[in-house]
Write a protein that binds this DNA or RNA. Structure first.
Length: 724
DNA sequence: GACCGTTCTCTTTTT
DNA sequence: GAGAACGGTC
């Protein structure tokens, strides 16, 4: 059945769908049918014959969302949906670059470097450059470079602030890093967005071409676009002025990676003739949930005021879980999930457990497993980041782009083939001297002063790569991968090694091959480059098997755009959520928006948990409840602490023995000395009770600034106070 | 050159 | 508590 895109919409949605006179901003509150509007709008454009499907560009936040959007549009326009350009910013830009990057002096087989590739590269750049990091970390340098790129500061433009040592180091390394990337024919995630801008600037004809192609542009999650993304869209839309952006300033949670909330807040200033639409009717959550979420986000100053409302009933109160420790927190979550399933006839996939940091998954995982609750972790240690998988992908990269030094370095001597440190540094020196890539240098092995054995090893490696490269032309991609994995000797290496770990790795290699098979059956042009691109642009959510009946575990960031009947937000402790890195009001506002995102994921029920003690980075920390808990109107929250089932298990002991067999049985943790953190309540023999306001140093010797009730602020060494 | 055990550091979120 | 880096041994 073919549907009508103007039906089943509320009046606000309908007018947003129908509006076609220039730039358009849709403020879409959580759960207000944003995807529906996008779907209907695209369908409307196509059905009414206003724009051809291949002249539409729709930008989504994940590849999964792109797929979903396409499927939903298909219900209206059938096969035509296949022609729409839909994707994330990164994948759309990658596609453009694959075609056009030669104008910028790269080859079209460029590699896309992920974080670990970038780290390897910057380390190499640092060691080749003799620049002293003075205690700063490669990671710090990278994140500053990324920040500069996100704000369009080129290596030439960047001027360090006088006296700022770090910025002088960055000034030295940034241009070298950029050169190294280019020499490796590689781009990082930031380049993916920047290079199209360069391209359009350098080749106006190309800009024209893409303007003609993308006559109608729609952008989802506009509140999280950064400057390059804004410019990309602005450039493309300038001519036809058919731009529709959808977003919610209350859900802007990526400012730390350059997202600029001003893009949405100042949209009307940017495009004076634009029309603004607001969608405020929520179809997702009960009223209690909405009231709680609104109450929280109302504490933010910098926002556009809007009032979400729902025709749904009040529903259940929010439930606060008070736990003694992080283990106890996980156990209580498990008990509550079981109870909900029993009493409310829910099923595992109705639940999502959301947290601020990935590190929190470990304990949750352990406890859920012991309670036989099936779960599914989104993000965390990713499949494609495992060593054995990364190694294979590195081989793929080298075979596609021989200039990719980082990948070549990774696999040159793995599995071990006699090209060790000595040999490598000899080749390396030669490469640096002659300005060659590592692979080119390997080809000149005869000129190098190396032992006979080393030369032979290198020659054998080169011959193998050439052999495999030849076979690439002759075989279909899938068949080729199966053959070369054996030829590379990775399987036999792990088989020889033996042990649990090797078995797991071999299984992962098989899983990769399965993934490739699946890729080949679902993608039309399945080849090496397409596969590498898919893998490097995958988002966390893309790999989520949402049809499985399991509880979903993910960070609050990953949960954006999703919904679940029951949402459990854990770790609501001051210092963890909001995370205390930078206590500026701006940072707290973003954390609060993140909490708002979490709350508004829920359709029917919310559990909020905090734990008094948590193990953080190997240390026990006592953290007070999150301020966010106090921002929820009191009458909407019910404290759980006395519910049956939890209490029954409370007196039993927690045992470290038989950890794999025994279910978690209580709340007692192995005791450890308590550590004072900011906010801890401590007592001192003479001064009495006080609150820690600052901590300098670590362990027993840390100097604590304590505000005592009796006598004001004093500085005391940690070992003289007791943490309550 | 490979391997193994130890020390050290660093802990946000992700395309 | 995990991963990387380092240093020592075979």
């Amino acid at each position: 059945m073919i549907l009508d895109p103007l039906r089943d919409l509320n009046p606000q949605q309908k007018s947003a769908v129908e509006y076609l006179d220039g730039e358009q901003l849709i403020f879409a509150g959580a759960g207000s049918g944003k995807t529906k509007v996008l779907t209907h709008k695209i369908a409307y454009l196509i059905k009414s014959g206003i724009v051809r499907p291949d002249n539409i560009l729709a930008v989504t936040f994940t590849n999964k969302a792109a797929q979903e959007l396409r499927n939903r549009v298909e219900k209206f326009v059938e096969k035509q949906a296949g022609f729409i350009h839909i994707g994330t910013f990164h994948s759309i830009c990658a596609r453009i670059l694959r075609k056009e990057i030669e104008h910028l002096g790269y080859s079209k087989y460029f590699s896309i470097y992920d974080e670990s590739d970038q780290r390897q590269l910057i380390k190499k750049v640092i060691s080749d450059s003799n620049i002293d990091l003075e205690g700063f970390l490669p990671k710090n340098v990278l994140s500053r470079i990324s920040y500069l790129k996100n704000w369009l500061t080129s290596p030439e433009d960047f001027k360090p602030r006088p006296g700022n040592r770090f910025e002088y180091i960055v000034e030295g390394l940034y241009p070298l890093y950029q050169k190294a990337l280019k020499r490796s024919n590689a781009v990082d995630f930031d380049d993916l967005l920047l290079l199209p801008l360069k391209l359009f600037d350098k080749e106006p004809k190309l800009l024209e071409k893409y303007r003609l192609r993308y006559q109608y542009i729609l952008v989802d999650e506009y509140q999280d676009t950064n400057k390059p993304q804004f410019l990309f869209i602005d450039l493309l839309a300038k001519k036809h002025r058919n731009l529709c952006v959808v977003g919610d300033d209350d859900q802007s949670i990526y400012s730390w990676r350059g997202a600029n909330i001003e893009n949405i807040l100042k949209f009307d200033a940017q495009y004076p003739e634009c029309r603004v639409f607001k969608l405020e009717q929520n179809y997702r959550s009960t009223n209690n949930i909405l009231k709680a979420a609104s109450g929280v986000v109302a504490n933010n100053i910098n926002r556009v005021k809007k009032e979400l409302w729902s025709r749904k009933s009040d529903g259940d109160l929010l439930i606060k879980i008070e736990a003694e420790s992080d283990y106890d927190e996980a156990a209580k979550i498990a008990v509550n999930i079981r109870q909900e399933i029993l009493k409310k006839k829910r099923t595992f996939k109705d639940f999502a457990i959301l947290y601020r940091t990935n590190a929190q998954t470990r304990i949750l995982e352990e406890i859920l497993r012991r309670n036989n609750i099936p779960y599914n972790i989104i993000g965390g240690v990713k499949f494609y980041e495992r060593k054995e998988i990364k190694d294979i992908l590195a081989y793929f990269s080298v075979l596609s782009n021989p200039k990719d030094d980082v990948s070549l370095r990774r696999i040159l001597n793995f599995p071990p083939r006699g090209i060790g440190k000595q040999t490598l540094s000899g080749i390396d020196a030669f490469a640096v001297k002659k300005q060659l890539t590592l692979f080119e240098a390997l080809n000149h092995v005869d000129f190098l002063e190396l032992s006979k054995r080393s030369k032979k090893a290198v020659q054998e490696f080169i011959d193998m790569i050439k052999r495999i490269d030849d076979s690439k032309e002759k075989l279909a991609f899938e068949e080729w991968t199966r053959i070369i994995i054996d030829e590379l000797g990775l399987r036999s290496y792990y088989k020889e090694q033996g042990g649990e770990e090797s078995i797991q790795r071999l299984a992962n290699i098989d899983e990769l091959l399965n993934d490739i098979s699946e890729f080949c059956t679902t993608v039309e042009e399945a080849n090496l480059e397409a596969y590498l691109e898919k893998v490097s642009l995958l988002t966390n959510i893309d790999v989520w098997e949402d049809e499985k009946n399991t509880v979903s575990l993910m960070t609050l960031h990953s949960a954006k755009g999703l919904e679940f009947p029951v949402v459990i937000i854990c770790g609501l402790n001051q210092g963890l959520f909001p995370l205390d890195r930078d206590n500026s009001e701006k940072a707290v506002e973003e954390e609060r928006r993140l909490f708002y995102v979490g709350l508004t994921r829920a359709m029917e029920k919310i559990f909020l948990s905090s734990a008094q003690v948590r193990n953080r980075a190997g240390e026990m920390q006592y953290l007070p409840d999150s301020i966010f808990l106090s921002e929820i109107p009191k009458e909407l929250i019910e404290v759980e602490s006395l519910r049956e089932g939890v209490i029954a298990s409370k007196r039993r002991r927690y045992s470290r023995r038989n950890t794999s067999e025994v279910a978690y049985q209580g709340t007692d943790m192995p005791t450890r000395r308590k550590t004072a953190v900011r906010g801890s309540i401590v007592s001192h023999k003479i001064f009495g009770v006080g609150k820690v306001i600052e901590v300098n140093g670590m362990g027993d010797g840390a100097k604590l600034h304590i505000n005592f009730q009796s006598c004001g602020t004093k500085v005391i060494v940690a070992k003289f106070v007791q943490v309550k």
